[in-house]
């Protein structure tokens, strides 16, 4: 554990924190309205720690859906994290399994985006991930609990569009990650698939399916190019 990297991870959490405060507070307010107690909100945020899933679950609990359906829905919504976790694995080979198990608890769409940018720009450091993940986690849990306690006292904080900070963050990180024509191809394909799937079936499969398809297209394009190159040099 190095102190400097941990602090650096905390610093890099700022855009995520800016987004988690309004969304977390909004979740707390909504869950309170749907009948969850502040302690239940705390319990859910601290053990589940997944924005979209918590919104869906709160609505399903309020409308009396059975436990198995709720848990299965949450499972489907979070399958996309399989791919993110897999793509981080090559950089965690020297990290002990128990530390991997703790750090991966803090893996969300947003922390993943910052994680991979750190990997791209620096020597990957477990302390960096720890600082980033801990700060984002604490922000999420606190914001949802505060939202739950405030309940109807304040208006929905996402109505000012502060949660747009997360989209702006994804735009910046996407541009940082695009380096060549193959990356552009993957990004455009993935965006198109994701939009189509969202428009056709709502959003729970869009990320996992479009990521698998777009990454496969990217690798195929590279192999195809290499074959052309080899055959032309013969």
């Amino acid at each position: 554990m190095t102190y400097g990297n941990f602090i650096n991870g905390m610093k890099k959490s700022v855009p995520v924190v800016l987004g988690y405060i309004p969304i977390g507070t909004a979740f707390g307010i909504l869950a309170n309205q749907q009948g969850l107690s502040t302690f239940e909100i705390f319990l859910m945020s601290s053990t589940v720690y997944a924005g979209a899933s918590q919104f869906i679950a709160a609505a399903m609990i309020a409308s009396g859906v059975n436990a198995a359906s709720i848990i299965f829905t949450v499972f489907l919504v979070n399958l996309r994290h399989l791919l993110m976790s897999a793509s981080l694995s090559p950089y965690f080979r020297k990290v002990p399994s128990i530390i991997q198990a703790i750090l991966s608890f803090g893996l969300t769409d947003e922390t993943y985006a910052v994680d991979i940018t750190h990997i791209k720009e620096d020597m990957p450091s477990a302390s960096f991930f720890a600082g980033l993940h801990a700060t984002c986690y604490a922000t999420w849990v606190l914001s949802t609990v505060i939202g739950g306690m405030l309940g109807n006292l304040i208006p929905d904080p996402t109505r000012w569009g502060m949660d747009y900070a997360l989209s702006a963050m994804f735009i910046a990180l996407l541009c940082i990650h695009i380096n060549d024509r193959r990356d552009v191809l993957v990004a455009v394909c993935s965006a198109a698939f994701s939009l189509l799937i969202t428009a056709m079936s709502g959003g729970s499969w869009n990320v996992i399916i479009s990521t698998i398809l777009a990454a496969t297209i990217g690798v195929s394009a590279e192999l195809w190019n290499k074959r052309l190159f080899l055959s032309s040099s013969e």
């Binding site: 793509s87 694995s89 990004a187 479009s210 690798v219």
Partner: peptide
């Protein structure tokens, strides 16, 4: 393939 996941995931999350 895994190396292309970041670009694909970021784009898939952002587009919708």
């Amino acid at each position: 393939w895994l190396k292309l996941i970041p670009v694909a995931v970021l784009s898939a999350l952002l587009a919708p």
